[in-house]
Design a protein around this nucleic acid. Sequence first.
DNA 1: CGGCAGGAGCCCA
DNA 2: TGGGCTCCTGCC
Length: 311
Amino acid sequence: MQEQRGAVIYLTFSGDKFNNTRNWLDDVTLLQHLNAELSINSGQEFLWGQIGDAWYGIHGGSIIRFKAGEPLKLESFPQGVSAQEVFRLGDDIGAIFEEISRDSLVKGLLGRYPGLRLMRQDPEQCLFSFLCASNTNIPMIRRMLHSLCKRFGSPVEIDGHRFYTFPSAGALDRASEADLGASGLGYRVKAMKAAAREMARGRLDLESLKKASYDEARARLLEVYGVGPKIADCVLLFSLEKLEAFPIDVWIARALAGHYEWLYGKKMSDKLTARQYEDLSNEIRHYFGRHAGYAQQYLYYHMRQAAGKRW
DNA sequence: CGGCAGGAGCCCA
DNA sequence: TGGGCTCCTGCC
């Protein structure tokens, strides 16, 4: 079960406000505000934000709310999404941390960012989100996704605020390429349409991939136009219960180059070839074990913090 | 002010 | 293996 110390629970949140690129909260503000020990990893969850004393997230067809001082209480509109599900309260975090404490670096990061956690995302939303994430940055990804929600999602009124659910695959499939492009997707429109079409027509059933092995589920995702190894690993880790997945983006590549050169090889650059990605991925998953994805989150978060990134 | 690099990558020639 | 793709931000 999730660790608790009195009223304190350790969770992960993306670190910014809804529709507001200014006044980003830092970790300290979050700690005070939620009365919980939190760390931000805005690179896994793009659509969480704070208004007043509550945090709101877009989770597929629901808007979810988490209020300060009520760490275990998560409400969803419409109902159906639980704290247990979203915050991964079923993970044996102590055992997982023990497993991934393979070296002093990761062991140190576990103590340094004690609130950092994986969250469980809606699979379709997760895939669409990371299809928007290629060759861009987090504020831009958020802008695209919020725009898609507003154009193709359904409005939900909560606490006097209007939110929009994440669009269904059907809604995105029915949208014209021009309409999708108006959300700032650029060349990504083609991949979004391709994925939406496969899901809407029942040829790609992400839910069923939860029961498949990591290799099987990954192979299926890679068949989708626009999905490469990095996006596949993100979807597997964040939404399909494959905690051994270890997405390697430029930040993780830098972390591996700087701290695991014996794995990484001195000749590699930030940009990995397909072959290098597969080799590295296999080795690092073997190294950290079946919950390697947790180690990945700590390394990613740390690299971003060290670079002074706030989102 | 303009120009350029870079950002949770991937496809294609 | 290299080039291109959209578009915005930060920096010089």
